[in-house]
Structures are given as C-alpha cells and as structure tokens.
C-alpha cells in the first residue's frame, strides 16, 4: 500500500548570478550548461523532480557543491527557487504568504543544521524550547516540554549548559531536540552528522534510526557519505551538478546504477550489505529446505546461517508466500562481489 505524498516538487531550478530570473525564461526553461557558463550563472539546482511519501527516510546524496543544501532550502522555502513548483501536503508552498509560512514552520516542519546553529546566548534547554518561545508559549510549559525532548535525545542532566560547553555530538542532539519539539510531520536534516567524528557519527545514526522507529516522521536527510545514505535510507536521490541523476532504493542503486557516476559511488559498497534475500533468491526448487527466511532480510544478515546449512533456505515474501530459494553458493557469490544475475 502506497503512503500519501507529503512533499512533491516539479522542475525546480535555482540559479545564482546576475539576471538569473529572466535568464531561464529567455532560454525556454531548458538552458544548456554552455549557455549558463557563458552568462556566468551558477545553477545550484537544475530541473529537479522529487516525490516524498509519508513515513519514509528520503536521502539526498551527492558530492560537496552538488546543490544538496540549496535544494533542501528550496524545499523548506528558506530560499525562493528560481522556477518550478513545490507542494506540501497538496498545498502550493510557493504561493504561501509570510504568516502562513511561519505557521507551517511552527507546527509542521523541523530542520537540523550541519553546524548545529544553536543560539549562543541560550542554554541547551532554552535552545530546545526556542520554537515554543517564539510561539509565545509560557516559560514553564515550554521548558517542561523541552525537558521531555532533551530526555528523548539522551541529554538529560546537561540542560543548563551553554552550547560552547557541549561537545559536537551533544550540540547536535540539542539541534535535534529543538527541531523535534514542535512535533513536525516533515523533518529536514542537512548533513547533520558531517561535522562529527566517525565514531560519534555512527552512534548518532543509530540514534536517528531509534528515534524514527518511535516517532515515524517523514525525513529528508542530506549527506555526502554514501555509507551513511545506505544505512539510513528507504530511498536515495543522487545529485550531481545540481541535477538528480537517479532516485531509487539503496538496493536498486547498487545493482542498477543509472550511469557511471552513480556506479562510481556504489562500487566499494559490499553488495551483501544492500542486497536483500528477495532479490538474490533463485527460482523455488523442489526442496528439501533447511528453513524459511523473509525476503526483506539483507544477505549479510543471513549469510552465516545459510552458509552453515547444507540445504538451501526458502525465501518468503512479506505475505508469507514462498517466492524462491537461496543457497550458500549464491551468498558466497554476493559476498565476494561476483556478478549476480537478477
């Protein structure tokens, strides 16, 4: 069953430079890269289509300067896109007035920033309570509420520290608490863990997955790290030079990269960590079988059991119907990276 669409954008452009607005019209909404370069215009986002469904983790991934931040700022309408349409829950985001937009941000959207963007003059707790403060909610209520989110992100006991007294990971937890306090439906995270060291980053990724398992938000997550994308994503959009090259599940991306650029990214990713049993399964044989496994399991997760058994395993689809079988040999093929037939 498909979830309803929460955010959708069509043909979004964002150009920087002199006369960027009229430029697009004069070039029939389809300027060539050469024309852009000649006019000295940077196209940070070009002709992007995105559809984000309720409850998914949608990762936008690309190298530095590929336009991820610009795109997400267009989606949150922190900056106005040069052209295109953006709909939030079916409403035209670009047509919204200032007060409507403020109301939207006060109740439906949250954002976490790469460099934390905490207010230096407020304590961690006051920072987390800030969105409620600007709504005019009284101090006692908002601090109580902030206390709850601080607990949620595991910062209990550090409420009264100032940002500069917290480590990077702790600061980002405050940033997360602040963005969650209004219980947003749509949650933007712009490279939230890039400024953290690798160990803390892993820890925070687990934290995010744990939070998501409880809260079921719709998440738009930006990263330039493909490993991070694969760990978190339901779907990934790969950006290059402002355009989206491919939007797909991590598995599809690894198995069927749209072009060499995407292939380059996916090359070093161990297939077993991405490919699911359902994809790797061979047609169902007569048996006998060592047991049953669900199709959504990743190969790496079931590899030990499959290899240890002499007989193949039966693979069951989500509804419990058998859809194929998998044996040790197939798993080894995938583990050592030999081409897998689909």
């Amino acid at each position: 069953m498909e979830q309803p669409i929460i955010l959708e954008c069509r043909n979004v452009w964002k150009l920087y430079g002199a006369q960027a607005d009229s430029f697009l019209q004069t070039h029939g909404m389809q300027p060539t890269p050469e024309a852009l370069r000649r006019a000295n215009i940077v196209s940070a986002v070009r002709n992007v289509d995105v559809t984000i469904r309720k409850g998914e983790i949608f990762v936008i991934m690309g190298l530095s300067g590929s336009g991820k931040s610009t795109l997400v700022r267009c989606l949150a309408r922190l900056i106005d896109s040069t052209a295109g349409e953006i709909r939030f829950e079916g409403r035209d985001l670009l047509a919204m007035s200032g007060p409507e937009l403020i109301a939207l941000r006060r109740h439906k959207m949250g954002m976490v920033f790469q460099h934390f963007a905490l207010l230096p003059h407020l304590t961690a707790l006051e920072n987390a309570a800030f969105p409620l403060e600007v709504q005019g909610i009284d101090r006692k209520t908002r601090l109580e509420r902030a206390m709850q989110v601080m607990e949620l992100v595991g910062l209990k006991g550090r409420e009264n520290r100032y940002p500069h007294e917290l480590s990077g990971g702790q600061q980002q937890r405050v940033g997360i608490a602040r963005s969650l306090i209004v219980e947003p439906d749509l949650w933007f995270l712009d490279e939230p863990f890039s400024a953290l060291d690798p160990l803390i980053r892993r820890e925070m990724q687990d934290e995010l997955l744990r939070l998501q398992a409880r809260l079921h938000k719709t998440i738009v997550f930006i990263t330039h790290d493909f490993d991070e994308a694969i760990r978190l994503a339901d779907r990934i959009a790969v950006m290059r030079d402002g355009a989206i090259v491919q939007t797909a599940t991590p598995e599809e991306l690894v198995l069927n990269p749209a072009d060499d650029y995407v292939a380059e990214f996916t090359q070093h990713i161990p297939r077993a960590k991405v490919v699911r049993l359902g994809t790797a399964a061979k047609p169902l044989g007569p048996g006998p079988f060592a047991g049953d496994l669900t199709a959504s399991l990743r190969v790496a997760e079931a590899a030990d059991r499959i290899e240890a058994a002499d007989l193949p395993f039966r693979v069951l689809a989500a509804d419990g119907a058998p859809m194929g079988q998998i044996d040790g040999r197939t798993v080894i093929d995938i583990l050592i990276g030999r081409e897998v037939a689909r």
């Binding site: 922190l78 941000r105 920033f113 790469q114 460099h115 905490l118 207010l119 933007f188």
Partner: peptide, 16 residues
C-alpha cells in the same frame, strides 16, 4: 551572524 543560525531562527517559526 552565520546564515545557518538565522535559518534556524526562521525554521523555528520566528517572525522577521
């Protein structure tokens, strides 16, 4: 003031 902090303010629902 870093642009990110201003954006954080806007995303928190601040009026101008």
């Amino acid at each position: 003031v870093p642009e990110e902090i201003v954006e954080a303010g806007r995303m928190s629902g601040c009026t101008p």
